[in-house]
């Protein structure tokens, strides 16, 4: 009998994420464009400032997280854009699975994608901006995960809406960027403190904002998602 049981929400989410990542792995188009975009951004930001006036160590956190938000957004459109071709979304919606699972799957594949971009961008910033990170790098990684979760939950929800609109690629940043403020600002402020060797204790308020944002918008977006795909 167990074969006839429908798979659980998490199992479906993992299946959808795996499908998306398999497509991405075979084409690698979105990942590489985001990666090149973020490396270009990091180097251009370095050149537009006078390094004798502004120390690279003061610039680096802001650059890192601004580029992260923009590069992340570049790829967010892909998750639902994929399903538009040959009306694959209809098939997904016809499947007897909870709608929340579709959202979680898409968010999960976006999370892997954004984290992969971040995993290259952080070392690139450390390298180009000559940063000395001790044990702070580990905490920075943690902040990166918290920030990526926040960016991806809100971004996935908005991309599921904008994909059905005219000028989708323009509308997504317009809607999503204000929502990235409570992600980018705490991440940048916390990394700036870590860079000058501050204790974890002193950046806790910023980390708390990130955690609160992730929890609040995680729940809100899962609840709101079914309303965006009704037909």
């Amino acid at each position: 009998m167990s074969e006839l049981q429908p798979p659980g929400t998490m199992a479906v989410a993992l299946m959808i994420a795996r499908k998306d990542l398999a497509i991405e792995y075979r084409t690698r188009s979105a990942f590489f464009s985001s990666l090149v975009f973020s490396l270009l951004g990091v180097s251009i930001f370095y050149m537009v400032w006078d390094p004798t006036a502004v120390r690279p160590i003061d610039m680096a956190p802001g650059v890192l997280w601004t580029i992260f938000a923009f590069a992340g957004m570049l790829g967010l459109h892909r998750a639902f854009g994929l399903e538009l071709q040959t009306r694959a979304m209809d098939g997904l919606l016809l499947a007897p699975v909870p709608r929340e699972a579709i959202f979680l799957g898409k968010a999960l594949s976006n999370l892997v994608y954004v984290s992969a971009v971040l995993a290259v961008t952080i070392p690139a910033v450390v390298l180009f901006y000559n940063l000395e990170f001790g044990s702070g790098l580990l905490i920075l990684g943690g902040i990166g995960i918290l920030a990526a979760v926040g960016l991806v939950t809100v971004g996935t929800l908005f991309s599921s809406m904008t994909v059905h609109t005219r000028f989708a690629e323009l509308l997504l940043p317009m809607l999503a960027l204000p929502f990235f403020i409570p992600v980018v600002v705490p991440a940048a402020q916390a990394s700036a403190k870590l860079l000058v060797g501050a204790e974890l204790r002193t950046v806790m308020p910023w980390i708390q904002v990130l955690v609160a944002f992730d929890l609040m918008f995680g729940v809100a977006c899962v609840l709101a998602f079914p309303f965006t795909i009704e037909d």
């Binding site: 929800l157 809406m161 409570p182 944002f213 609040m216 809100a220 709101a224 309303f227």
Partner: peptide, 20 residues
């Protein structure tokens, strides 16, 4: 409606981020 509801959750966060 979804955007309106999410925005009402966002404003306190922006306020908090800058209040720090």
């Amino acid at each position: 409606a979804v955007l309106g509801i999410l925005a009402s959750l966002l404003v306190p966060f922006i306020h908090l981020s800058v209040r720090l």
